[in-house]
Amino acid sequence: MRLRTLLAAGFLALGASAAFAGASSSQLEAYQPDPALRTAPKADLESRVRRACAVVQARLQNTAETGFERPCGCYAKTTLRSLDASEIEAYRATGYFNDSARAKALNAIDACKLQRPV
Rank of each mutant, 00 (worst) to 15 (best):
A36K: 03
A40D: 00
A52E: 14
L28G: 09
G95D: 03
Q27W: 12
R50H: 11
C72W: 08
S24Q: 13
Q57I: 05
D44W: 04
A9Q: 10
A58K: 01
A16D: 09
Q27C: 11
T39K: 03
L37F: 04
L37D: 02
T5R: 14
R92E: 09
D34A: 08
E46A: 09
N98A: 07
A64E: 14
A93D: 07
G73D: 01
S86V: 14
Y96K: 14
R81A: 11
K77G: 08
T5V: 12
A40K: 02
L28A: 12
A90K: 00
A13Q: 15
I109D: 06
L106D: 15
I88T: 11
E29N: 08
Q57F: 07
V49C: 02
S26A: 15
A16L: 07
S82R: 01
Q32V: 14
L14S: 08
A18Q: 14
A23M: 13
E89H: 00
C74K: 03
Y96Q: 13
T66C: 04
L14K: 07
C74F: 10
A64N: 09
G22V: 10
C74R: 01
P71D: 01
V56E: 05
L45Q: 00
N107G: 09
D99P: 11
A52P: 04
A36I: 03
A18W: 15
S82T: 09
F11R: 09
R2E: 14
T39D: 03
S47C: 08
T66G: 12
R50I: 15
T39G: 01
Q32F: 07
